[in-house]
Structures are given as structure tokens and as C-alpha cells.
Amino acid sequence: MRGATRVNLSKGKGDRLFGVVVVLGALAYANAALNLQVGFLTDPVGSKTFPLLVAGVCLICGLVMVLKPDPDPKFPSGATWGLMAVAVLTLVAYAYMLKPLGFLLPTTVAAAILSYLIEPRAKFAALAGIGLSIGLFVLFRFVLGLGLVGLPRGL
């Protein structure tokens, strides 16, 4: 179908790269499956067979992606990669902070950063952060009755 484009190795880089990752992942998974601890009483299939089958399917699919990649999608530019990395870091930090710092403070900051990343309007982002944090807290705590902690315990 897309035979003509396949000669050029630089085309379909995304698929090729991902295919390689999948192949390596499948091999690692199969290796882990082979080293699984098995009990004394086991059924004819055992704990290893199904994971090995799954790894096999992954391996084949990964190889197909390496050999017959689809044309590349439009990947984001360098700056956008940076924005997305900031987003991931924000979310990871948010996940760690939610318990020690309570709902309101981390949510305000995280929501404001995300809003700013989607559209860089600082004032709007700050207001969105504050509004979402208070609005959602009221909604979850008082309307839906979830046990959220608003502020750090020390306060």
C-alpha cells in the first residue's frame, strides 16, 4: 500500500523507534516470564505460558512496526517538548504534594501551571488556578461529600 515510501529510512522514524522499544520490552518481558517463581501444584498451562504468548505477539507487532512503519505524524517542536516535560513534572510533583500539603495549595499551583502551558496568559492562568481549586474543593467536599483535606495539617 505504501511500498514506495518505505525505502527511505528517515521516513516513519517514530514507528521504527517505538517498534525497537517494543521489541526490547517484549524480550525483557519474556525473560521475566521465564524466570517466574512457580508453585508446586501447577496446571498444564502454568504461570508462564500466557505471558510468553503475550510477549510473542508484542515481539511480532514491534518487528512489523520496524519493518513497515506508517508515515510519521507531526511531532511537536523542541519548545513544545519542553512545555510537555514541564507539564509531566508538575503532575508528578502534584501527586507527591497532594497528601502532605492538602488539596487547596497544590491544586491552585498545578492548575495554574497547566492553564498557562495550554495558553500563556498569566492572569487568566492564576485566576483559573484559584477558581478551580476553590470551586472543586467546595464541590467535592461539601456537595459530593468526599473526604478531602483542604490545608496542610499543621495549619
Binding site: Q37, V38, G39, P51, C58, C61, V64
Partner: peptide, 28 residues
């Protein structure tokens, strides 16, 4: 097809994580 099959296999692979419910040993 390859990508769809891959997606299914990845999902199945993730499902295997955890205690094996017949042997009781952890997997992956």
C-alpha cells in the same frame, strides 16, 4: 493491524502484573 494487536497485547501484558491468582506468587 499490527498496532491494534500490539495495543491489545500491551494491555494483556499489564494485566499480568500482580499476584498470580493460581500460584499466589507475584509476577512482573
Amino acid at each position: 493491524q499490527a498496532k491494534a494487536a500490539l495495543a491489545s497485547a500491551i494491555g494483556l501484558g499489564i494485566a499480568m502484573i500482580g499476584l498470580d491468582n493460581s500460584s499466589g506468587f507475584p509476577r512482573f
